[in-house]
């Protein structure tokens, strides 16, 4: 494959004496889904926050399309084409779909910040972008609070893509959703993948979901990459073992049996 869309090299982050990340190397290519798996405290959140410009790395480099980047703020990362969809989605429930879609990047005529909003055009765009990604909101003027969790997730994804995200970071997009909505989000991810020009970093705890959509895996434990590879090359049990941070799931089964036997 050609140049990765985003690549990190020896990314390290220390919070005082605590080493959150210890030399992470990562590569994501256009049109693929990289599943980033790891137990709680493995460093997933820190890694995302560095990639999205919230934290600055202590050492290491980030390359976007081959060029080294330094992100001083989330704005920088977003301008470089990194769109992050957080767990809380950064969505305002009382505001309409359109107003959320364009929040902070409104279309207006006149002098900022008192320029008149072009609501008709914004409604059209918001609706069209949501349809593209697979959700036909009946009325873009409806409050986001009326939408389901899966739809909100889709709104956040559509917004990130519309505003130029080349790398989409999804932070546990399927957790806290019902079964059917989880499937909806996975479908959305596959539609984005099918466009071919966007790389997705999919953070999840859910092994089944990762197997459904991911092309490649990277496993984190205690701030380091402990394994990874293409889906085809990894055995099911191997995935589970790495997800649990390297401990064997077979051991767990035995331990549980022992407890029962007591």
């Amino acid at each position: 494959m050609a140049e990765p869309l985003i690549r990190t090299q020896g990314l390290t982050k220390k919070f005082g004496p605590f080493t959150a990340l210890n030399g992470i190397d990562l590569e994501v290519y256009k049109g693929e889904v990289l599943a980033l798996l790891g137990d709680n405290g493995a460093g997933k959140s820190t890694l995302i926050k560095i990639l999205s410009g919230v934290h600055q790395p202590t050492a290491g480099k980030i390359f976007v399309e081959g060029a080294e980047m330094k992100f001083a703020s989330p704005r920088d990362a977003s301008n470089a084409g990194i769109g992050t969809v957080y767990q809380d989605l950064a969505i305002n429930p009382l505001m309409s779909v359109t107003r959320n879609f364009f929040m902070g990047r409104e279309l207006y005529r006149g002098v900022a910040p008192f320029g008149l909003l072009d609501m008709t055009k914004m409604d059209e765009i918001a609706h069209a972008e949501m349809v593209k990604i697979g959700i036909d909101v009946s009325d873009p003027r409806q409050a986001v609070g009326t939408m389901s969790g899966g739809q909100r997730q889709t709104l956040a994804i559509a917004r990130a893509i519309y505003f130029g995200a080349k790398v989409l970071i999804l932070d546990e997009p399927t957790s806290a959703l019902g079964q059917k909505q989880q499937m909806g989000v996975l479908k959305t991810m596959m539609r984005v993948r099918a466009r071919g020009d966007i790389a997705i970093i999919f953070i999840t705890h859910n092994e089944i979901h990762s197997q459904l959509v991911a092309d490649r895996y990277t496993f984190l434990a205690l701030g380091e990459v402990i394994g990874g590879g293409a889906k085809a090359d990894l055995e099911h049990d191997e995935i589970r073992r790495l997800m649990a941070g390297g401990s064997d799931i077979g051991d767990l089964a035995k331990e549980l049996q022992d407890i029962q036997a007591e």
Partner: peptide, 22 residues
Amino acid sequence: RTQAGNWIFATGDNSESARANG
């Protein structure tokens, strides 16, 4: 009708997400 108005609503609804969106 204006951008400033959208910002006022966004600030009051959820200031953190408003901030995250610029």
